[in-house]
Design a protein around this nucleic acid. Sequence first.
DNA 1: CGCGACGTTGATTTGCCTCAACGATTGTGG
DNA 2: CCACAATCGTTGAGGCAAATCAACGTCGCG
Lengths: 205, 205
Amino acid sequence: MGWLRHLRAVDTDFGAISRHLQRCAPLRAGELDRFLENLEPRHVPKRTALLRAGEVCDWEAYVNSGCVRSYFLDEKGHDVTLQFALEDWWVSDLASFTEGSPSRMSIETLEDSELLLIRREQKESLFAEVPALERVFRILVQRNLAALQDRFFATVAQPAPERYAEFLRRHPSLPARVPQHMIASYLGITPEFLSKLRGRIAGKG
Amino acid sequence: MGWLRHLRAVDTDFGAISRHLQRCAPLRAGELDRFLENLEPRHVPKRTALLRAGEVCDWEAYVNSGCVRSYFLDEKGHDVTLQFALEDWWVSDLASFTEGSPSRMSIETLEDSELLLIRREQKESLFAEVPALERVFRILVQRNLAALQDRFFATVAQPAPERYAEFLRRHPSLPARVPQHMIASYLGITPEFLSKLRGRIAGKG
DNA sequence: CGCGACGTTGATTTGCCTCAACGATTGTGG
DNA sequence: CCACAATCGTTGAGGCAAATCAACGTCGCG
């Protein structure tokens, strides 16, 4: 947990997250500021574990810059990537965060990243104080759920080549930023098989 | 959409939904009543389509009694069941409901069901009026998302026999209420294969 | 009764995994 | 600056889980 204690940056840019929140629901300047005051900026080097399965996740992180991955480990040690969080995304273990239970997922940075943390306690009291913030996060969670429903459907119903094509369409910049075997684990296939898929596609083109 | 016009029942029981909401977050009596006033009770016979893919879903339904299923159809006509909503669950196409976009999923009753509908418009204005309600639904959506993350992980990482065993553990009463091929579509396997799984288990026992 | 939806069972196929070997690249300590 | 290991991606042979296709029995219902 050493990464939690990094020095607070003096030059944090709250522009992106401010726009991010305002896009969800209108906030008065004072309301927005109350939220920003409670954020803890952190600079985290690449390949740092932010959360290990079993720990309790008492924070949610907004990614100001960099790239973060959340994933599950199955009993054979294979990992299933739940999310790649790039700039302007949130990442957390929601179940652990809301229930205070030990997390089942792990979270790590893939690049040097600047994160803005909000603690569970602060968030709760902010919600009580500023209902508009509760609305913002309700909307964010709703979108998240709708997106995961889509992904679930695609994962069950579509064969791997389609899923990969769709992934490239929606995240064209990701392959340049994350290792290929993690993309495989996002798609729910083995690295070897993804490599063969790519071989086939390249062969055709 | 004829089912939407059924006569309003005179003897609707709001006890279950009241407890359901109060369990999420405290509501004052007046706040709760404002919500209940905006519900539209509906009795719907079994095997009725509540939503067809392509329509816009402007309601969320609380299941007071009965059983409702939401599902996606893939291009080959196979369906993927997203949810079985029994008593005390909500069902809706969240993406369509919040975006006003054409739905990608379909929803149908599996049994004669008593539903309590809330319309999108009413819900929005209630949220503006009663922040505590916004909190209730934020929490419900959060739980829903956490549960779907778990299911996603299980679907990708576990083989079918484990998924079926887990399903039976968590929903022991469902096989008696819904056709087996729908359970297969919930598990993401074919009806034939589920039948063979059951054969194997019965053979062992 | 007879039709259609449902579940079962078997033969065959296939999409993806496993295991293993092999370059290429990166980074790290001597 | 180089030796070395570690990580990463590729490729191939073989295997397995689950799908597909087809036939058949059963039940509920019009």
